[in-house]
């Protein structure tokens, strides 16, 4: 596990690279996209264990903190959702450079799943999406009613930072309209793992161009919810196993 900072000055992002235990020709890479706020703190342990597990399976893994969160530069009151989508792009480029990869997978938890979706649609080098407990797009806001704000406005400090769902859907639709070489550059496979049925709208937004898509419903305890009063969520061996199995079959 190698810690480092990446990205342009004043937007430096803290990253942790987990090199594959078994190196082979080619190789596969995955960027992990955090949830936000306390969900991120609680899920930190699960992400570390998942990273180790994927690295043992031969994957190059990069964990990182969005700007204004965790150990990265800046404060959350001066960033927007678009900034965080950009940050995922920085992490994609960094991992590709580190591991000399043509493309990477994106794995996002909760709001990180939606940010990963947006980044995946924008970056042609995204080979696949793994969306773990994505925030329910049917809900009134991305992370609950207290999360308000506008897509390109600074995120309210005490909200933990997010925009409402209409903004997010609009962002995905706008990203899909952006010029691109061909639809074949879109993520062509996805695993959606969650404890709830995935909303149709979400399927419509991300699913229409996918060649391979899997939905796995799980009742495993969510890593982003506090297990007790200790600030950490449970580590779901079952969910990690499901992700490892699916990624093991990924081309």
């Amino acid at each position: 596990m190698n810690p480092f900072f990446m990205g342009p000055e004043r937007k430096r992002l803290y990253g942790l690279y987990h090199p594959p235990v078994l190196r082979g020709p080619g190789g596969k890479g995955v960027v992990l996209c955090n949830p936000l706020g306390s969900e991120s703190s609680r899920a930190h342990r699960s992400f570390r264990i998942l990273s180790d597990s994927l690295a043992r399976s031969g994957w190059h893994v990069l964990r990182f903190d969005y700007r204004g969160t965790g150990d990265s530069a800046g404060d959350v009151d001066s960033v927007t959702l678009n900034d965080w989508v950009e940050d995922i792009g920085v992490a994609i480029n960094e991992l590709r450079a580190i591991a000399e990869l043509k493309g990477v997978h994106l794995l996002g938890l909760r709001l990180g799943a939606l940010l990963a979706t947006a980044a995946g649609l924008r970056h042609a080098d995204t080979q696949g999406l793994i969306l773990w407990d994505p925030v329910d797009l049917r809900s009134q806001s991305v992370l609950g009613a207290q999360w308000t704000g506008q897509l390109d406005q600074p995120v309210p400090m005490d909200s933990g930072g997010a925009a409402n769902v209409r903004d997010f859907e609009q962002m995905l639709l706008e990203i899909k309209k952006e010029p691109r070489e061909s639809h074949s550059s879109w993520p062509h496979q996805a695993l959606v793992l969650g404890s709830k049925l995935i909303p149709d709208r979400f399927r419509e937004l991300i699913g229409q161009n996918l060649r391979r898509m899997a939905f796995e419903e799980t009742d495993a305890p969510p890593p982003w919810l506090e297990e007790s009063n200790f600030g950490a969520g449970p580590v779901s061996a079952r969910a990690i196993q499901t992700i490892s199995t699916w990624t093991g079959l990924a081309p």
């Binding site: 810690p3 480092f4 900072f5 000055e9 004043r10 430096r12 803290y14 150990d71 530069a73």
Partner: peptide
């Protein structure tokens, strides 16, 4: 590695 303005991962 250093970062702006003055934080380093060690």
């Amino acid at each position: 590695c250093s970062t702006s303005p003055d934080e380093r991962a060690i």
